[in-house]
Design a protein around this nucleic acid. Structure first.
Lengths: 184, 184
DNA sequence: GTCTATAAACTGATAGAC
DNA sequence: GTCTATCAGTTTATAGAC
C-alpha cells in the first residue's frame, strides 16, 4: 500500500503540484481512508520528500543505463531528453520543475531534494558536453556549464510550454533542432 | 485599493503560485480585512484572471516599445530576455510559467489567459526570427516556430532553474550564448 | 468602502477501536 | 493495517452593520 500511495502522490505532484492536491484525493483514488495514508507517511511533507528521493534514484538508474548502452554524447543526450518526453506523453511534468514554482511554501527537505536534482542533472549534462568537446564533436565554445544550463532549462521550460499549449510534440522536436546546432 | 490588492496578488502568484497563497496573506500584508478584497474581486479566481489580463497588457506594451526603439532582431530579443531577467532580479518568476504547473486546478478563464500569453510570445519571437532570416542574419535553418519554442522554453525553464538554484545570473548568460549561436 | 461576524467546506493530523 | 471519529485550523465566500 505504501507504494501505491507514493505512486499516486507522485502522479499528483507531476500534474497539479504540492499545493494542488490533498490526502483526500489520494484516499479517494485508492479507495482507502486518509488515516491510512498517515500510517505510512506521517506528514504530507514526508510523503513528498520520500517520493522525490525515489524519483531521483530511479532517474539516476535510468540515466546510468543510458550511459552504458550508448557511447556517443549526442546520442546519450537525445535518449536523455526522451526520458522527459516519455513523462510528457503520459501527461506528467517534471516533479522538480513543478515544485520549483511553489518552492518557497515547501519544507527545507523538499527544497533540498529539488535543488539536488537540478545540480545532479547539470553535472551529468556538463559531463556529456565535455566528452563531446574532447572528441571534437562540439561546434561551439560556450562554457559547458552554461550550455548545460541552457539545455536543462530548455527541457524544463519545453515541458511547461507543451503542457500549457497541449502540444506534446513540441518538446523533443524543438530541442533536437538546437542539439543539432551544437554538435558537428 | 484595488490596485494594491492586485499588485500583491501578482507578487504572490509569481512567488508561490495560485494555490500557495490565500486572501488572508494579502489582507495581512495590506493591513485590511479579507472581506475588503472580496469587495473588489468577488472570487480568488476573478482576481487571478484580472491580474493576468493586466500582466499581459503591460508586457505587450513593453515589448511593443522595444520593437519601436530597436531595429535589429537580435537586439530586440536580447532586450526581450532582459524583461524576464528583471523579474528574476526582483525575486519573481513568470506568472504564466508558475501557473502552468498547477493549470489543471485553475478556472478555464485563467487557463485561457496562460495559454494566450504563451501563444502571443511565440508569435512575437517567431516574427523576430523571420525578420532575421530575411535579412540573412540567421545562421540556422530550423523552422522559426520551433526555434521560437526553444527560446521561450529556455527562458521559462531558465527562470525556474535560476530560482531553484538561487543563481540569478544563469538566465541571461546562458541564453546569450545560445542566441549568439543562432545569429551570424 | 471597510468592517465584524459567520457560514460551509476542506486541510493535515491524531486517538483509539477493531 | 485499516478503520471511525474527531480535532483545530484554514479556506473561500457572504450578510449585514457602520
Amino acid at each position: 500500500m505504501a507504494d501505491r500511495i507514493m505512486d499516486h502522490a507522485q502522479l499528483l505532484v507531476q500534474s497539479v503540484g504540492y499545493n494542488g492536491f490533498s490526502y483526500a484525493d489520494i484516499a479517494q483514488e485508492l479507495g482507502i481512508r486518509k488515516a491510512t495514508i498517515h500510517y505510512y507517511y506521517r506528514t504530507k511533507s514526508d510523503l513528498c520528500a520520500s517520493l522525490l528521493r525515489r524519483y531521483r534514484l530511479r532517474f539516476r538508474i535510468k540515466v546510468e543505463s543510458a550511459m552504458a548502452e550508448l557511447a556517443s554524447p549526442k546520442e546519450r543526450l537525445m535518449l536523455y531528453i526522451s526520458f522527459y518526453q516519455e513523462a510528457l506523453d503520459d501527461g506528467r511534468l517534471c516533479p522538480c520543475g513543478v515544485l520549483t514554482s511553489e518552492l518557497l511554501t515547501l519544507s527545507p527537505d523538499i527544497q533540498e531534494e529539488v535543488r539536488g536534482f537540478f545540480d545532479e542533472q547539470l553535472d551529468w549534462i556538463e559531463a556529456q558536453l565535455r566528452a563531446a568537446a574532447s572528441a571534437g564533436e562540439l561546434r561551439v565554445t560556450t562554457p559547458p556549464r552554461d550550455l548545460a544550463a541552457s539545455l536543462l532549462g530548455m527541457i524544463e521550460g519545453g515541458m511547461l510550454l507543451a503542457h500549457a499549449r497541449k502540444n506534446r510534440r513540441s518538446l523533443a522536436d524543438a530541442i533536437a533542432g538546437t542539439l543539432s546546432l551544437i554538435f558537428s
